[in-house]
Design a protein around this nucleic acid. Structure first.
Length: 419
RNA sequence: GGAGAGAUGCCCGAGUGGCUAAAGGGGGCGGACUGUAAAUCCGCUGGCGUGCGCCUACGUUGGUUCGAAUCCAACUCUCUCCA
């Protein structure tokens, strides 16, 4: 990206942190942001009932806007979720039921509220749902109003759909319309709330510029697009997505301790970059911490974990998670703050085979998996390896009123009997 | 509407009548080594009781056969080309 000697504090910091991948007109946007508060938005698809760390960079963008006195809008795609964005996807998403969608919207909203302040009037941050306008669109009107401005050949030329076609996976007309609706969103937010900037991941470039074109053609206004880079780990994996599941930001789906652990386990080479991306620490400090070598970088990882967790779950919860981790890993002590779960006291009174207890606790998915874990030497009870998968565990094994079960070195769970 | 190709376990991908719970790879989990990292190496990787089994599984439903992921029929869906 060419250097424009950016003047606006927001863009200067965004650039320093590496948030900017592409921008439609950086110089003009810079000028607009110097002239006064700018309203910008990012859309979030309610494909699950919580956001995950893959959405974190987008959230950080909105927060940064808020910190610099601009107005962020978080748009929930309650309407577009009924279509499904085909961008860079191999195949169409399965459509979700209305109940599921409603539940997801509730979860996404609570995710967003963890990061952004939508209440205080001075910031003016807003949370909106595009179902509010998309749901009542009339087909013919939409085609005449918006459809005429879209060129099929142009749409086909976008990399985001080209790949799909080249892979011979097909693209239905339903999905093909996603871009049109997202463009409509931009225009709507511009008209309703004066939004002049749409941000998003680099995979959204095509959808974003389509919206910019629409606003220019129908309303003769210049609006802007800005994308963030795709965050991958140094070893090339998409961040925060494992087969086991995404790293969720809602505590109901992922305990704060686990969230903290996710960041604590960042690869060495990613520490500096992730500090800049996912914390509010000054850029110079991030760079300094990321440059630490060898075992020293572990201290930087702890800072990263606590800072990133504080933004999501609050300072207090983050500090508690840090302390829990310190005790669990550095002193090997059992602490009350590990993720915990209750089991019927009757199970312990009678005594329960070890493999069954692990499955019951949810630490493994099945009895068979529990047996394999124990046979593989990865299961521990109160920090001591379990050698016999059928060993009976009862009330005599309680330590301070709880059982500490461990799967491997990193997954711990406290089980408390419930009478 | 016509012609052709295809649908396999979390994913990719072999397998074309029994030796197939199904090669290989990826991913995941566990172990070793370390620094709660990466890389590397080793083991495991459908469920239930367990070392002898039972159940479920190769798009769906039927059929042929002692026996089918493998053969036949119909159906569903996807892709390619044609109209």
């Amino acid at each position: 990206m060419a250097e424009h000697a950016l003047k606006s504090p927001f863009l200067r910091e965004a650039e320093a942190r590496g948030y900017i991948f592409q921008c439609t007109d950086l110089a003009s946007l810079d000028a607009a942001m110097c002239a006064g508060p700018v309203t910008g938005y990012i859309g979030f698809d309610p494909t699950a009932d919580s956001l995950h760390v893959g959405n974190a960079l987008a959230i950080m963008m909105l927060r940064l806007m808020q910190r610099h006195g601009h107005r962020p809008i978080a748009l929930m795609g309650g309407g577009t979720a009924k279509i499904g964005d085909p961008s860079f996807r191999d195949e169409a998403r399965a459509l979700m039921s209305p109940e599921r969608l409603a539940a997801n919207l509730v979860g996404i909203e609570s995710s967003l509220r963890q990061f952004l302040d939508f209440e205080s009037s001075n910031s003016g941050a807003m949370l909106v749902n595009n179902a509010d306008w998309l749901d009542r669109l009339s087909y013919i009107e939409l085609l005449q109003d918006v459809g005429v401005h879209f060129s099929i050949s142009r749409m086909l030329s976008f990399e985001s759909v080209k790949q799909r076609l080249e892979r011979e996976q097909g693209l239905t007309f339903l999905e093909f319309n996603y871009s049109i609706l997202q463009s409509y969103d931009f225009r709507e937010l511009n008209r309703r709330h004066g939004a002049v900037l749409q941000m998003g991941g680099s995979d959204q470039w095509g959808n974003i510029v389509a919206g910019i074109d629409l606003v220019r053609r129908t309303d003769a206004r210049q609006v802007f697009g800005l994308t963030t880079p795709l965050v991958t780990t140094s070893s090339g994996a998409k961040m925060g997505k494992s087969a086991k599941g995404a790293t969720w930001v809602n505590a109901a789906k992922l305990p704060v301790f686990e969230y903290w652990q996710f960041w604590r386990n960042t690869e060495d080479d990613d520490v500096g970059r992730f500090l800049r991306f996912f914390t509010d620490l000054p850029v110079e400090e991030c760079t300094r911490l990321g440059a630490l070598q060898g075992a020293e970088i572990n201290e930087a990882k702890k800072i990263l974990a606590t800072e990133a967790t504080a933004i999501c779950h609050g300072r207090e919860a983050a500090e508690a998670a840090a302390e829990t981790a310190r005790q669990a890993f550095e002193t090997g002590t059992l602490t009350a703050d590990l993720p915990s779960r209750e089991i019927p006291a009757a199970l312990l009174n009678e005594g329960i085979p070890a493999f069954r207890l692990f499955a019951e606790a949810g630490l493994v998915a099945s009895n068979g998996e529990a047996r394999r874990l124990i046979r593989g030497g990865g299961a521990r009870l109160n920090d001591r390896p379990i050698s016999d998968e059928n060993r009976l565990i009862g009330t005599g094994d309680l330590v301070e009123g709880a059982l500490k079960l461990s799967s491997g070195k990193k997954h711990h769970l406290l089980l408390r009997p419930r009478t």
